[in-house]
Computed example of a mutant assay.
Amino acid sequence: MKLSLQEQLLKSGLVSSAQAKSVKSDKHKQNQQQRKNKIEVVDEAKELAQKAQAEKLERDRELNHLRQQQEEQKQLAAQIKQIIELNRLPTAGDGLAYNFTDNNKVKRLYVSAEMRDQIAEGRLAIVKLGQTYEVVSAETARKIQSRDAASVIVFNVDKKNTETTDDAYAQYQIPDDLIW
């Protein structure tokens, strides 16, 4: 025959018989009041369990949303890397130095004279791939820019659309040998 928890506690000496009787009478009184007043006793433990479960579900949703955002960022980075690797143009290691800024630091990339002119005109662009810089076409730069604008370092937009009529130096020609 199995003993109830109350009997087990009494037998082991953890609870005195007076404590056991008082708990039993309190429980009996509470049941009687419920029957008389037809009041449902609020089960605090049940409410706390429900609150804890609701909080856990909310935390799980937030964590899941964060994981999804991180996964999307990884996918975008992989797409950008693939686009750059498939469309990069070879640079001339012994060509002319093209200077540009990245995070307020002046960087240098050696390209041919023709590439340098195309970069200046906006037909080519410089993009960042990891710690290196690559030259890609303007169309490829637009694709990359739509995914992550920070990856496109140098992309000179078409000068015809951005030229203003208020430019006081518009009639002066820029020297061909000007290199900064």
Rank of each mutant, 00 (worst) to 15 (best):
M1W: 06
L3I: 07
Q6A: 12
E7R: 10
Q8K: 15
L9Y: 05
G13P: 02
S17N: 07
A18N: 11
A18V: 14
Q19S: 11
Q19N: 10
K21S: 13
K21V: 14
S22C: 02
V23K: 09
K24S: 13
S25F: 04
S25Y: 08
D26G: 12
D26S: 07
K29N: 12
Q30P: 00
N31F: 02
Q32V: 13
R35G: 02
K36W: 01
N37E: 10
K38F: 00
I39G: 03
V42K: 09
V42H: 04
D43S: 09
D43V: 01
E44V: 10
K46W: 04
A49Q: 08
A49V: 03
A49G: 10
K51E: 06
A52K: 13
A52V: 06
A52M: 05
E55G: 05
E55N: 13
L57K: 15
E58I: 03
E58L: 13
R61I: 04
R61E: 06
R61S: 05
E62F: 03
N64S: 14
H65V: 05
Q68W: 11
Q68L: 13
Q70V: 03
K74T: 06
K74G: 04
Q75E: 15
L76M: 08
L76P: 00
A78Q: 13
Q79H: 05
I80F: 00
I80M: 01
I83F: 01
R88I: 01
L89D: 04
T91D: 06
A92C: 14
G93C: 02
G93Q: 14
D94R: 13
D94H: 08
G95T: 05
A97Q: 06
A97S: 14
Y98F: 15
F100S: 09
T101M: 09
T101P: 01
N103C: 07
N103M: 11
V106I: 11
V106L: 11
Y110R: 10
V111K: 04
S112F: 03
E114S: 15
E121P: 01
G122I: 08
L124R: 06
G130H: 06
T132P: 02
Y133R: 01
V136D: 07
V136E: 02
T140Y: 09
A141L: 07
K143F: 01
I144C: 08
S146F: 02
D148P: 03
A149R: 13
A149C: 00
A150T: 10
I153L: 02
I153D: 07
V154F: 03
V154C: 10
N156V: 15
N156G: 00
N156H: 12
D158H: 12
K159M: 07
D166G: 06
D167A: 09
D167S: 10
D167I: 07
Y172E: 15
Q173W: 03
I174W: 07
D176A: 12
D177E: 15
I179R: 14
W180V: 12
